[in-house]
Design a binder for these strands. Structure first.
Lengths: 212, 212
DNA sequence: TTCCGGCATAATGGATACAATCTTGATCAT
DNA sequence: ATGATCAAGATTGTATCCATTATGCCGGAA
């Protein structure tokens, strides 16, 4: 018989964290705002306990600050924030490249992503881009690295999607270059290329955020 | 008049997290154990609400796993765990060195630590070592990096203190070398030296953990 | 007017009690 | 021995309650 029982979803704290994350990075909730405990619980249709846990998660993700007796303050995307975020990503992702080279990991998934990125149009660029990076993290074999980078990605990178074609084209070329270096198992150069790739997109974001 | 009111300590959730962290990394609580909610709350002399938040914190630190409806499971210090931990530290700390060089940060605090490390005995090696690393993080100017590395340090490095003199001597020489490269503002070499330093201590830890 | 201090309100941090759901282990029949 | 049933215990989420603390307003003094 068909089992129609609803699948067990993520814990409520995770769902709440996801909802709030979405709202914060899309700036539906402006920076500086404080999130009242009961009000947000009511708004999400849940009780306060999982909301507290969600606040802890988001604070660890760098999206909130839990100030003493003053509640959860939404942190804005200041230039400093963006810079710090990308510097950390650069460090971790270049380490991932190094590990991939050193352990001679399988590259077929990564190659797949690169090929799609080159051939397909720009409409699903964002997903393919994420997929490319994610598969490198996976291939590094360091699961802790994967979770940390996933959290970072959710924390800010998701809210800072590149839309300009110009950037997408540059990115694509860099992806091909990185893949070639991974294939050559050149740990140093691959790590350096990834670092440059991420720091360049950091600069793109910074100009986009300051020029408006 | 003298103010004898007790200073406001950290939130209870942080204290609880610290206590449990200590217990886990010192292996007072063996790996695989599950931490019952009410029992731990009672053991810590607090209520369950902050304990839940502490569990979330420790799960993010990689010391616990929050399994669906099965509570908080203590994760052990397997070789894989240690390797992943140090690889991430290596990435972040070498990035810190790079940033210190690039921005030409003030090195006086770091120099101070090195001098003390060289001159003083081995009894307080651990604190001086931590202080050396911490001041590099600070000098990088990336506050997010500081918090992440602090959490990592609390998560595992604290529980894996080096005691052997042999290691301490090697470490000291490496610290001097790193400082010299920082002073020379040689970002590449300083980053590489820090990376090697941390990966070497990783290997020391791995042999210590597998040889017993 | 401007600045300072006290007071009242409101919200947080934490405690506690409780309902519902899930895991688990033991019992029992096949 | 194997497999299903079922009861006990734990977790997850809900609902309040209380003490402490931040904050804003108001009034008085310089």
């Amino acid at each position: 018989m068909l089992n129609l029982r609803p699948v067990k979803l993520l814990p409520v704290r995770e769902q709440a964290a996801a909802s709030l994350r979405e709202a914060i990075i899309s700036q539906s909730i402006p920076a500086g705002e404080v999130l009242p405990l009961e009000a947000t619980a009511k708004a999400l249709g849940i009780s306060v306990t999982p909301v507290r846990e969600a606040f802890v998660i988001l604070a660890r993700d760098g999206l909130l600050e839990l100030a003493q007796n003053r509640g959860a303050v939404v942190l804005g995307m200041t230039a400093k924030n963006i810079r710090e975020h990308y510097q950390i990503r650069a460090a971790l992702e270049s380490e991932a490249c190094r590990l991939v080279c050193e352990k001679g990991a399988d590259l077929s998934e990564i190659e797949h992503c690169v090929n799609h990125l080159v051939s397909s149009g720009a409409e699903n660029y964002s997903e393919l881009n994420q997929s490319f990076h994610y598969n490198i993290w996976l291939a590094s074999g360091n699961s802790r690295l994967v979770t940390m980078l996933s959290e970072l990605w959710n924390g800010l990178s998701m809210g800072l999607r590149t839309t300009k074609d110009e950037y997408a084209r540059k990115s694509r070329a860099e992806h091909e270059n990185i893949f070639a270096l991974l294939e050559a198992r050149d740990a140093m150069k691959a790590a350096e290329a990834m670092r440059d790739h991420i720091l360049r997109s950091m600069n793109d974001m910074l100009t986009r955020y300051t020029e408006r």
